[in-house]
Design a protein around this nucleic acid. Sequence first.
DNA 1: AATAAAAATTAGGCAAGCCTAATTTTGCAA
DNA 2: TTGCAAAATTAGGCTTGCCTAATTTTTATT
Lengths: 218, 218
Amino acid sequence: MHSSAEENYLKAIYKLQEANGEMVATSALAQVLGIHMASVTDMLKKMSAKKLVAYQKSKGFKLTEKGRLAAIGIIRKHRLWEVFLVDKLGFRWDEVHEIAEQLEHIHSQELIDKLDAYLDFPKADPHGDPIPDAKGNFALNKSVLLAALPPGSQGKFTGVTDHSSAFLNYLDKIGLSLGDPVKVKEVEEYDKNYTLMLKGKKAVVVSFKVANSLLISE
Amino acid sequence: MHSSAEENYLKAIYKLQEANGEMVATSALAQVLGIHMASVTDMLKKMSAKKLVAYQKSKGFKLTEKGRLAAIGIIRKHRLWEVFLVDKLGFRWDEVHEIAEQLEHIHSQELIDKLDAYLDFPKADPHGDPIPDAKGNFALNKSVLLAALPPGSQGKFTGVTDHSSAFLNYLDKIGLSLGDPVKVKEVEEYDKNYTLMLKGKKAVVVSFKVANSLLISE
DNA sequence: AATAAAAATTAGGCAAGCCTAATTTTGCAA
DNA sequence: TTGCAAAATTAGGCTTGCCTAATTTTTATT
Ligand SMILES: [Mn+2]
Ligand SMILES: [Mn+2]
Ligand SMILES: [Mn+2]
Ligand SMILES: [Mn+2]
């Protein structure tokens, strides 16, 4: 069994690899974990010994297959708990991350299997992030950033790339929820503001920053 | 916020005080926690400094009011999670203790409040143990050991004093569940075997050991 | 190639929680 | 009252996961 600290490292490394490709730097990991580089060097030596990460001196490191599977397991737990918190307990989507950050470290395969079934095998968490199945497979999701779409395009809002409370609350405020239809009505060339047509023919104007944090499918 | 280790000490001390009255001995705590006495001495010094326990040299120690409230908070969480595991996820009553042992250490008042509401404010856990309310008050429960009842008595099975899987599975086997009516039909003087009348006029003969682990109300 | 900045590692420490071994204190029984 | 055993404490160590400060290595820039 891995410690919570190890599990947080695994998850962080996995996400850095996802975002930036292959090798991960000590400094990057230190930054996202809010930990000093010397500590990261320490921990990675231990995780190397356990064959969770593969070290390549001065090139960085990456997860081994064993490490990758462990990381996906944590992510699966995190996201299933988030679904539970929102769907069953009634938390808002901007409130669940911190609590799931703790719940993801509960060790019980039986528990997570039953939770998955209880939630009816959800495919995505409250932020639209895909939930890997029990074998560690993600459902292919071919969404694109709204900011990449030309005027006239339409699709369904299925995820965010900014998970901050500030952003999630902003979306609540303009009345945009996961699964809603969205149409790009107009893109202002000068400042790249997007005029969107939301559910119920509601038009809203959002900045490029916002358009660049919305994932659209279909 | 207290660490998991501290919380486990608090809970153990609370239960020892409940069972044996006032002062708790280092040795008793070491035994129930499965930890060496020297370690307990260490930890209690730290918890004393935090005003969680009051030390009386060579007389033992007991929880302060602050420690008592903290302990009750952990017990509340433990039992609510057990209800969740059984009622919502479908675990059996003999499977939930270990998992609740972990879940009780999740820190979020908001979470436990919502869980309580979601479970409809249960008054007892799957083993019949009372769940303190949000203010730390237990519902008075005036149950007695079945072994203390004379032949002819009847009541409702509302709790166990033996929480072992072996015992819980035995109860499943003879078909006795929490809330069932039970009548003491006969007590054999020679070996103190109890003949009980269960739901559906089923008669079973159980040992004194069993009769002494069943709590009866009403 | 020289040099400065950034990245990484090493060295030495610390707190939490545990351990073993040694010692002290306490409670009892002879 | 003495003497022993059980209980408790002290002393010294260990692992985990973090820290700061010092040093080394790598990378960029001229
Ligand atoms: Mn976490
Ligand atoms: Mn999420
Ligand atoms: Mn516990
Ligand atoms: Mn219980």
